[in-house]
Simulated assay, not measured.
Amino acid sequence: MADPRVQTVGIMEVAALSGFSPATVSRALRGLPGVSTKTREAVERAAASLGYAPSPWATALTTGRTNAIAVIAPWVSRWFFSAVIEGVQEVLSACGYDLMLYPFGVDGELDARALTKRVDGVLALNVPLAHRAIEGLDDLGVPIVTVGTAMEGISAVLVDNVAVGRQATQHLLDLGHRRIAFFGSETEENRRFTVASDRQRGYHDALRAAGIEPDPELSFPTDFSINGGEAALHRSVGRFGPSADRPTAVFAVSDEVAIGGLHAARLHQIQVPKDMSFIGVDGHDFAYLFDLSTISQPVRDQGRIAARLLLQQVNDPGAGPTAVNVGCELIRRASTGPVGGGAPRS
């Protein structure tokens, strides 16, 4: 019975098969001068037949490159982050780079020294500006690109979240809504992030532009989860009951929050959109299943753009920082409609 263990093929095995010295094989496989074309081709044939792959650590010692990129993020299980990482991985794989994932959690910690000499660059996904996870990244001496967080002197892929908040709220205003709730006010978890506060600022701006002073009673704290949206709707019902002061529409800080709100609305026999309209943000893959209106952002494209920016800086250390702003799109579905009416169809 054959040994099931994987046998490592190294320089010595390639040298034995090709008939050349280990030193010659090493120079041939690294593309160094002093090796004839005929010898190089013979070595490459031997290496291919054995399934030889160079050790990444040995390559790093020789070239100073690891061909690995670190991605740091507060979460990886939430849809936004997993979708961004999917876009990053697509570009890195096509360019021969490995992705090393470092989730740290909002209250977690990342020792930047752990990345020293292990990666060629760092992608930071929506890392709060004040979070200790970003402390020390500058000292690594490798390029850094952020997604969703603007940092001076660092390349970034950004969404104008204030404009997103205005656009979502304006959609509800255009449908005649005046009592518009916001699900996404600051919690202990998202206080360090600017996304929720920026979207709420856009919500306030749109209301004031329409001559409506924002009512603090209509703002409900949530995280970015389905459970958070469900809890916010329950609190709204508890606060207003069936009174005329109850909101007729909800702007949720994310699609997942909106989905949680929709679920809770059914439990309270609130008809959507007749009794209450809902709009979220992100363009979640499952938003269409809930007929959810949303401000859709190109999430996977943000990962692709960020990865390309980072590889550009890895290969050209002299390249200056670049900020790329991506646009968003209103997608109208049946979760939003006129006050007391049905959902308009386009």
Rank of each mutant, 00 (worst) to 15 (best):
F193V: 14
P298R: 12
V119E: 08
L173D: 09
G141H: 11
Y52E: 03
A156Y: 07
L173N: 09
T59I: 15
G303W: 02
R78N: 10
D291E: 14
G337E: 02
G340R: 06
V314K: 02
F278E: 07
D107M: 01
A258V: 13
D282E: 10
A48C: 04
V119Y: 10
R65P: 04
G241W: 04
G136M: 06
L101A: 03
I69F: 04
F182N: 02
G64A: 09
M151C: 07
D223H: 11
E86M: 05
G64D: 06
T63G: 12
H268M: 09
V142C: 09
S197E: 08
H171F: 08
I279A: 00
A244L: 10
I180Y: 05
D215A: 06
G165P: 03
V145Q: 07
G238Q: 05
G141L: 04
R192D: 15
A258L: 10
L101P: 00
V253K: 03
G241L: 12
R201Y: 05
G327I: 09
S21Y: 06
T146N: 13
S335P: 06
L289I: 12
C328I: 09
A168P: 00
H131T: 05
E188T: 15
G211R: 04
V106T: 08
E44H: 05
F290D: 12
S49M: 10
L233M: 15
L137N: 00
T149H: 03
D285I: 12
V122E: 06
V195G: 12
S296N: 02
